[in-house]
Amino acid sequence: MLIHRYIIIFVLTINISWGQTTFQGMNPNIGVIGDFSYQIHSNDVDLDRGFQFSEVEISFRMVLDPYARADFFIAVVPPEEAVELEEGFITLLSLPYSFQARVGHFRPSFGKFNLTHPPETPLATLPLFLGNFFGEEGLAATGVSLSALIPNPWDLYIEWNIDILNGEELASFKDNAPEDFLYLLHLKNFFDVSENHSIEFGLSTMMTKSDASGHETRLYGADFIYRWKPLIFGRYRSFTLQSETIISRKEVENQNINSFGWFLFLQYQFSKRWFAGSLYDYSGLPTSGDDVERRISAILSFWPSEFQTIKLQLQKSERNFSTPRSFISVYFQWTFIIGAHGAHKF
């Protein structure tokens, strides 16, 4: 870990010293996000409590050459001071036939919510199924991704992508061998219903061998977002309805484990800087057909400027696989960003 820290300090020092000389124009865009939170829970649950500095996320982003761009997101996670590569990938922008490829460690397109880094989501906690089926930070894996738009006479946005990934670090696939790749296929569709309303939906599927005996695990996902944002007063009012679901079918000796998760998230922006939201969240576990947990949350967010967000989230949780069966949590989260704040994904 110490070596990791020295590497980061070295990279930042090089950058700063270059920044002060003629190399300033050659520096990548650097952004740093701080994610501070306070959380309390009503019962003795196995969750963090008190003040947390959940992570510091450092991003370096730059166009590499006429053919590609590169993006790195490195997280420093206290109190262990672990340094994690959240993402590090090259995107090939000028492949023939309008293909685009991504190579490295990245957040694959299984659903929509997973594509956003946890400190930048509208929630203080990730939806349950991302944690249960993939990992604490959602789905991130190493591999390659190829995508393209499907031409159609109606000029609709239809994009497919196929990813081949290592999956042994993910909760759903942790028993598989490194040479057993994970195959992901995603289809994204977008429609402008009118100038102010839009609908996006996607379908995902992922499969791999679960273990050395050749058993398979298959995941199926669907995601849906409806957005209302009036063009003229879009900075003052908006509404989002987002839902995602996952179905898992895991083959083990003489049986299949079927499990399921989904969430429904609603968010209304009622003034320039204030948002109110609610989340219903349900998830099983990939390794058990019976264990389930669910939560209901209310979220209030305040944006003093576009560089900081303060969230208050009240949450009631229930689960059938450990005690206490039911508890209430309060999360207070403050995220802030310095440096480059690049283009937003839609």
């Binding site: 994009e159 402008d192 839009s198 994904k345 839609f346």
Partner: peptide, 11 residues
């Protein structure tokens, strides 16, 4: 300053 990068513009 605040235009949503809608996929329909990508088309």
């Amino acid at each position: 300053h605040y235009v949503d990068a809608k996929p329909s513009y990508i088309i």
